[in-house]
């Protein structure tokens, strides 16, 4: 694509950006209208494909993991959202921290997170991963929140959260992904 300052700008008054193949502002000189449509919607296309295949790292360290398994199994079926589990961080887009993180585990959490390719997201599932939960007071071994180790995008409260709550968390993350600007000026 030729660099054109107009391409990075959010479309002004006109059709909303969420409508695929909508014609935004006027076509740039020298390029056909098809080229413009492609750039104007590249963010939309990339974000849509990312949010629709959120492969998550299976990272269950305690009882919340049982609920995560339940959400992945046939009754709640997270595959519907394109979220399937991976057993390796190198194939994952999303780290679902489901359970208690101890200080002994902390180094491993960081290492797994570092191994994930960009763009990467983290959902902190359950009170333990959010704040230390039942171990907040008087525990020498539990990290008081996984956000002390890695950046977190979505927090899901509950001890444990029900699968519906987990799916809601995944849908919130999908909304966050759809707002991302990948091309042109960063919004």
């Amino acid at each position: 694509m030729s660099p054109d300052p107009a391409h990075g700008q959010p479309p002004g008054p006109g059709p909303p950006p969420a409508a695929p193949l909508a014609h935004g502002s006027a076509p740039s000189p020298g390029l056909g209208p098809e080229a413009h449509v492609m750039v104007g919607n590249a963010d939309l296309f990339v974000n849509w494909s990312r949010k629709s295949s959120l492969w998550y790292l299976l990272f269950a360290t305690a009882c919340c993991g049982i609920e995560l398994m339940q959400a992945g199994a046939s009754r709640y079926d997270m595959d519907r959202f394109g979220a399937v589990f991976r057993a390796t961080p190198r194939q994952s887009d999303l780290m679902l921290v489901a359970g208690t993180i101890t200080h002994k585990m902390a180094d491993r959490v960081k290492r797994l997170y570092d191994q994930m390719p960009e763009p990467k997201y983290v959902i902190s599932m359950g009170s333990c991963a959010n704040t230390g939960g039942p171990f907040y007071k008087d525990s020498y071994c539990v990290v008081k929140g996984v956000d002390l180790l890695i950046p977190v995008d979505v927090y899901i409260p509950g001890c444990p959260p029900r699968p519906e709550a987990l799916i809601d968390g995944i849908m919130s993350l999908q909304k966050i992904i759809m707002r991302k600007k990948n091309f042109g000026a960063k919004a």
Partner: peptide
């Protein structure tokens, strides 16, 4: 159970919690 480089024995009644472990607040 604890990491190799942990200091002290936590179930002793006179155990004092460390403030930080590997830079993370305990």
């Amino acid at each position: 159970l604890l990491p190799e480089d942990w200091e002290g024995h936590p179930l002793r009644k006179d155990y004092k919690y460390p403030d930080f472990y590997h830079g993370i607040k305990v």
